[in-house]
Nucleic acid binder design. Structure first.
Lengths: 224, 224
DNA sequence: CTGCCTTGCATTGTCAACAATCTTGCGCTG
DNA sequence: CAGCGCAAGATTGTTGACAATGCAAGGCAG
């Protein structure tokens, strides 16, 4: 579908949401500069509204403001990525713990099992792309099951720098097996209502993933 | 000093910083409505700049935007406060862990001991106000010692709703002893370079504090 | 007296124009 | 040919004016 049709009149929040989506989807690359005028035209609004959306997203940590240069999608150095990885570790661990603490409905339990099954199928089929997609869906599902929107929000943010980075990760086919073994432990712990076990398993799992990040080449960190 | 002298010309960031300070200091109460025009006049700038400052602070979680009504200092429901408390628990736990993992300099170790000593002095003197101040300084020091700015940023955010709430907390003189006992365990663990012990102690400590929040009366949650 | 409508005021929402600033490419000089 | 201004273009920074919205006070009907 062509995306160049002038958008409907949106509020600042709507524009912010649209831009947030583009950043999270990787549509806008890290370090990419955003031009007020272009977006104003695209959305069919004045520059002021776009500016306000920019300021909201800077406050949320998605954009970087440079005086007299405007905004760019926030970049992260290797050090920052490692720091955020540690934060992600405890936050995702918390989400798993909370999911295990709650009395899940039958539907929720089924959703979790289904997500696990889809990852298993992708693993067996050796479909790395599908595994990547299902992996992300699985982690987001656990956030949802935690019922803690603040934890979710922060996890989303510390996951941003991984958007582009995870490609080389998928190349390592061997790690899929290891990764999914972690998933099965987490799934079992949540379904069994074992918070401590769920948190420990999730933390270990995320930490494993972070180890890959530490070995990435420098090129990954330059925002074009 | 009288505060009614027209302020110097400030950037949006400067205005945001000023407002953030007023919110953090309790100068602006929870739920208080802020008028663009008044602040524009006070700071001697156009409304646009004030609006942009508002949007930044909304993104940071300090303000709440209501369509066609402007902004008010963000209120948090009891449920949100409890949710954020759990996030704070693991994040402060992480900060303590990281502080214990790092090889602290002599100066840093001294700072930590000094902060602990000041809390001890306030406890002995029975000075609840001083203890509250030193308590906050202590937690912030540990954030700094962690060396993880992202953890720090998130901790600051989940601490926002506690600004007003901590007053009744201080009334419970008995809890000061219990609280400071927790501090001593944390301090010792960090100085001993014991990450696991430091994290566990901090999590327990923060969880204790959160228990107070859960028992607060409903009035605390209504923005005037 | 009570409830609803209306009218006026306070405030926010939006834009378009102008000023300030930065970048870029050109030409001049040594 | 390299380096240094310098001017033109592009982009952001800021404001004031006008439109739209919501709220409160007062009047009117029942």
């Amino acid at each position: 579908m062509a995306d160049d049709m002038p958008k409907q009149d949106l509020s600042s929040e709507g524009i912010a949401a649209a831009l947030r989506g583009r950043i999270l989807s990787g549509d806008y690359g890290l370090g990419q500069r955003l031009i007020e005028m272009d977006l104003a035209e695209e959305f069919g609004v004045g520059r002021g509204r776009v500016r306000e959306a920019f300021r909201m997203l800077t406050g949320e940590g998605y954009l970087e403001f440079v005086a007299n240069r405007g905004v760019l999608v926030r970049r992260y150095s290797r050090v920052e990525l490692i720091e955020m990885g540690r934060v992600r570790e405890v936050l995702e661990g918390l989400a798993a713990r909370l999911a295990a603490e709650r009395a899940l409905t039958v539907v929720q339990r089924h959703d979790l099992e289904a997500a696990q099954a889809r990852m298993d199928a992708a693993e067996v089929a050796g479909d790395l792309d599908a595994f990547g997609v299902e992996n992300r869906a699985y982690h987001r599902l656990i956030e949802d099951l935690s019922g803690n929107v603040h934890a979710s929000e922060f996890i989303t943010r510390v996951r941003i720098p991984l958007i582009r980075v995870q490609m080389p990760w998928e190349e390592v086919a061997e790690s899929v097996g290891r990764s999914n073994r972690g998933h099965r432990v987490i799934t079992a712990a949540i379904l069994a209502g074992a918070p401590e076990a769920a948190e420990v398993a999730m933390r270990t799992h995320v930490r494993d993933g972070n180890a890959h990040v530490a070995r990435l080449p420098d090129e990954v960190f330059e925002g074009r």
